[in-house]
Design a protein around this nucleic acid. Structure first.
Lengths: 135, 135
DNA sequence: GCACATAGTGCCGAAAAGGATACCGTCAAT
DNA sequence: ATTGACGGTATCCTTTTCGGCACTATGTGC
């Protein structure tokens, strides 16, 4: 159940980019992995790091990541429940990918009042002579 | 209009990973960029590379990428319409990101009959002593 | 007796994303 | 006269996603 947004990769066989994205897709997976890269976290610890995610959504995203084999969920059967989320080896192998995403986002994205835009590139006015799409 | 799936990055300030993902999100953006990395393509050329995408969706995704400033759309006003899609400098700066995604997908994703799964990792049986979530 | 913390689940409903299909205009070839 | 290529739109409909809220269980502390 619940493969992320029906991103079934078989529709365009051989696109490794979409294959990877299909695992990162879902509203909070990126952030979750970003935080888990730094170490194991408990459910509520993670929740505190993502203030705007509801419990329901966090659970859902974690379950999807777990089902994909990217993170592990370890239940310590103690009296106030205690559940640890950590990266599996597969999850750890995503490190360079997450890092690349983080670097680009850090360098090129400007978040201002609710929207994120790409930092303007200097060369971005170069015209080759034809008609640019007039918005 | 149409920022991708309301992935408004301001909700979790300072997550560069989601910032980047917000631009790659949308069902076909990954593949589109993957193909455009290799050079300019015309609408129908792109379409032929993505057999299962409808015209409508392709247009939509291209428009979103254009709006984001990742690709450029150049109309040559000739008689059978001729429109070129190419990466902008901003789009080209995504190359390492797309490459990272492609590498990981290539190495770790197995696409079999409609589903993509992560290639099993050898170390993936290591148990630390606690209760693994029994699905 | 009551509230709190932990880690969830279930149900509802709105909104968005995605897919199918049909249609547009022009020119060239058949 | 019809068909095809090109690069789209418009419309409709279904699926998915996401968010809100309430509810659960257990043990501890007040």
């Amino acid at each position: 159940m619940s493969r992320p947004r029906a991103k079934l990769t078989n529709r365009f066989p051989g696109c490794p980019v979409e294959s990877t994205l299909s695992f990162l897709d879902g509203k909070w997976k990126g952030v979750i992995l970003y935080h888990l890269m730094e170490g194991t976290l408990r459910f509520n610890a993670l929740r505190r790091k993502l203030p705007s995610v509801t419990q329901r959504m966090l659970t859902k995203q974690l379950r999807e990541l777990e089902e994909a084999g990217i993170i592990s969920r370890t239940i310590h059967p103690v009296v106030p429940p205690h559940v640890d989320y950590a990266l599996t080896p597969a999850g750890r192998s995503l490190k360079p990918v997450i890092a690349a995403l983080a670097v680009w986002g850090h360098e090129n994205v400007i978040c201002e009042d609710g929207r994120s835009t790409i930092r303007p590139f200097p060369e971005d006015g170069a015209d080759a002579g034809a008609v640019e799409s007039a918005a």
